[in-house]
Design a protein around this nucleic acid. Structure first.
Length: 428
RNA sequence: GUGGCCUUAGCUCAACCGGCAGAGCAGCGGACUGUGGAUCCGCAGGUUACGGGUUCGACCCCCGUAGGCCACCCCA
């Protein structure tokens, strides 16, 4: 017999963890509704080309980490599990002609994403994201709205010490110019570059800016800054985004070395970062403007902005600071019986109360009464309903487990009695 | 994808130099046949991650594989 286990980089969310994730999902949905971002559901997989085109074929996410599905036959379409939501949302926008909807359209997507990389704490092959997109508004106001929305999520989720980092990475006018300057600058210092950085210079020069190699620090510090190379339109936009953030009272830091790993970003880039976090998985979420993506996926030129927040990392952060992630609500009542074997009577009473909308559990294992009450206590039920001989007269014993009191109640009054008690306390 | 550390019961961990695999918690049962979270007693739970090798003898040493973690890479 082989011993089976969850695939590498995936995990079973046991009830406690699942409840924590559910809490975050509910918070995300309620915030989305509050801000006017409508919930959208898109497939967990797409045509591979949606990601290749949208995210960029040369990015690590596509090149190395894409979860490709084996085609069923030679001529079958090539599919891949979604590594993020933006490309799929934009694909849906184009497919359903949403450019004819009142602009902008604002969406919220919550769900699992998949990346085939080497797992670590806070880095999984299946992980959960809350994704928010606003398509059809060039900003800058919506840029600030989105950034503030993300920050609000962390505040209300209870994650302490989240910093907002912002930058502008330019557009198709000024970024190529800046990249040339950057290549020229690091090219001059080629002899001083470690091998990894040399490769970056070829493949993705922006990455040189957030190198973790201490030997690079001085060189990076003296490197030309994107913020000084922005064209006038981008500079004006960035300035206006910051003015909006100031007006909202959102504290942020301009981080000129902040770049994004996916090709589609332009102008505004931002990241939520946890200071003082253990381990390297400190990026809690990030996003930016992607004015070119709709066109890349076959639509007409449409400005857009969005973010993705990693819910697993929020869960991890909450656990680390010792925050209570989620509390399961205890049942109002627990049905027990004097005759262990008479499970039918117990189940019948429980079903009757459940039909009245009450949260009721019942002991169906034929344990003796003492054990049944033990279960009721352990699950923090407020009441125990004891079924015994008095049932022949249509009565049951209603025991208040918290107060330790007990009285005889007619079966016909039971639901009403409990409902009244449920109102004055809070039970599930 | 690269390098390093780790893996013993469901969980947290013991086991001397290579010499009989154990405890606490959790579970189940009894003490207690109609009254609860406590207590005491008992039961069950293991191919020591998996596969090889060395050895009279391997949880322990060596090799491989898998999984987890750390750093890098990347990113959420």
């Amino acid at each position: 017999m082989p011993s089976f286990r969850a695939p590498r980089g995936t995990r079973d969310l046991l009830p406690e963890t699942r409840a924590g994730l559910s809490r975050l999902e509910s918070l995300a949905r309620s915030l989305a509704a509050r801000y006017g971002y409508r919930e959208l559901e898109i497939p967990l997989f797409e045509q591979t080309a949606v990601f290749e085109r949208g995210i960029g074929e040369a990015t690590d996410v596509v090149e190395k980490e894409l979860f490709r599905l084996a085609p069923r036959s030679e001529e079958a379409e090539s599919w891949a599990l979604r590594p993020e939501a933006t490309a799929g949302v934009v694909r849906a926008y184009v497919q359903h002609g949403m450019q004819t909807w009142p602009q902008p359209v604002k969406f919220s997507v919550v769900g699992p994403m998949f990346r085939y990389d080497r797992p670590q704490a806070g880095r999984y092959r299946q992980f959960w994201q809350w994704d928010v997109e606003a398509i059809g508004d060039p900003g800058p106001g919506v840029d600030a709205e989105v950034i503030e929305l993300g920050r609000r999520f962390y505040v209300e989720a209870g994650v302490p010490g989240v910093q907002v980092l912002v930058n502008s990475i330019g557009d198709s006018v000024c970024r190529p110019v800046y990249l040339d300057r950057l290549k020229e600058y690091f090219g001059r210092h080629e002899a001083a570059l470690p091998e990894l950085e040399l490769r970056r210079l070829q493949v993705n020069p922006l990455r040189l800016l957030d190198s973790k190699d201490p030997a690079m620090a001085a060189l990076v510090a003296a490197a030309p800054r994107i913020t000084e190379s922005l064209c006038e339109a981008c500079a004006t936009h960035f300035e206006a985004v910051r003015a909006h953030l100031d007006a909202l009272g959102v504290a942020y830091r301009v981080e000129p070395t902040l770049v994004r790993g996916l090709d589609y970003y332009s102008r505004t880039a931002f990241e939520y970062y946890r200071s003082g976090a253990e381990g390297q998985q400190q990026a809690l979420g990030g996003g930016g403007r992607y004015d070119g993506l709709v066109e890349l996926l076959g639509g007409r030129h449409t400005p857009a902005i969005g973010f993705a927040l990693g819910l697993d990392r929020v869960l991890l952060a909450l656990e680390e600071v010792g925050a209570e992630v989620a509390r399961e609500t205890p049942p109002l009542a627990f049905v027990v019986g004097a005759d262990p074997a008479d499970t039918a009577a117990r189940l019948r009473v429980a079903a009757m109360l459940r039909a009245e909308g009450l949260s009721v559990r019942v002991e169906l294992v034929p344990r003796k009464l003492g054990r049944q009450l033990e279960s009721a206590s352990r699950e923090h039920a407020h009441f125990a309903i004891i079924i015994g001989d008095e049932l022949t007269d249509g009565n049951v014993q209603l025991k208040d487990l918290e107060a330790g009191t007990q009285r005889l109640v007619p079966l016909t009054e039971l639901a009403k009695d409990l409902a009244r008690a449920a109102k004055s306390h809070h039970h599930g």
